[in-house]
Design a binder for these strands. Structure first.
Lengths: 205, 205
DNA sequence: TATAAAATCCCTTAAAAACATGATTTTTTA
DNA sequence: TAAAAAATCATGTTTTTAAGGGATTTTATA
């Protein structure tokens, strides 16, 4: 049986790269590609592939959300996340939203084929480096944020003050301040500038 | 005469994409690739291509700096910047450091060939979207920072206070504060959180 | 060489963040 | 169901930022 593969990525060169890598592979058929979420969903209405390679950074929609959408409408389609970042929070989010695994764009042909094969067996596949980053020191000492911390981090990045956040969430100033403190502490940041810099760098926001 | 093309990019899929696009193109030979600055320079010691497609985000070195290095050692090699961001400051930096142009990774075969052709004629080539972004409203209203503002923005992102920056630059607190104010104003940011968020998003830092 | 732009400096006030230190209540999970 | 983790709240102090309103000196550049 031939595995029908569809690619969603806004970079034409990456699409071409994957197409080239999958060309002449027995058992795999490249059935098409999309460069944004909208055209991806439009394609799926007409035709369903077996597996989608889905970039996380799409122009019109976050890859995470698209992943969720696809999985809810077409639960049998396997999805492999695709991105340049081997960031724990990225990998986690992708898996939470129903992906079967995660490939980095610097993955080679072997990994790509292995990933497709593994996903089609309904097992989880992670890129070598992505898998490493889950055990890696550098990633390991990246903070793990709670639901509330993530929420408040987002508001801080938007420029809201503690009081404004407190009003918005119907909690006291003190509580927001506590969360802010723990954010600074978890990131090892001495002030909000460093906090936002790191959070942005590591794609928390 | 055949144009020898070398690709430097840390994403294997992009390299494969370019290789696939250039395959069977008369007059163009894909002579190799590197995934980091070091191996790129090592390659150049043995062999010089006519043109290098150079990614801006490299693991060991900033693409900008590598561009400068290559140009100073091998002035006859043409360089085309390669990145996913069509950000004015990126394009500017690349050109300042001696690049002949700039290609986005969502460029198609036509643009790629056009870019190579144009660069080999010692003319400037910009990706369609990159060229647009130089005239685009969205990019146009992105701030243009002065030397000092850039410098101080960097220190703010590192977490230094006005006083610490003042000490470091041997200027007064007031001066730093003025620059900080103009940064906030130029970015339309109400506080440093928004400032750093935007600056990071648009690759100023 | 005018003119504009950039960099420099100063003062004041109010708001917000950062730091310290502690505690209670909910929720999760082993 | 205990223990751990998360979320909640409080009080007080010090430091830093933000906003407002100037002004002078360098440095580019038309």
């Amino acid at each position: 049986m031939t595995v029908k593969v569809f690619v969603v990525d806004d970079h034409y060169m990456v699409i071409e790269g994957i197409r080239a890598l999958l060309q002449n592979e027995p058992g795999i058929e490249f059935v098409g590609n999309a460069t944004n979420g909208e055209s991806c969903l439009a394609f799926l209405q007409r035709q369903q592939p077996d597996l989608i390679l889905l970039d996380i950074n799409l122009p019109d929609k976050k890859g995470f959300d698209l992943c969720k959408d696809i999985k809810s409408k077409y639960p049998t389609i396997q999805i492999l996340g695709l991105s340049t970042f081997n960031q724990r929070s990225y990998i986690d989010k992708m898996m939470e939203n129903g992906a079967s695994g995660y490939l980095l764009k610097n993955a080679g042909k072997d990994e790509l084929l292995k990933g497709i094969e593994t996903a089609m067996k309904h097992k989880t596949y992670l890129s070598h480096e992505a898998a490493l980053s889950l055990r890696n020191e550098e990633s390991e000492d990246l903070p793990v944020l709670t639901r509330r911390e993530n929420e408040i981090l987002e508001y801080i990045a938007q420029g809201l003050t503690n009081q404004e956040i407190a009003d918005k969430l119907f909690i006291s100033y003190s509580t927001v301040d506590s969360h802010r403190k723990s954010l600074l502490h978890k990131f090892g940041a001495k002030n909000v500038a460093v906090l936002i810099n790191l959070a942005s760098k590591y794609k928390f926001i």
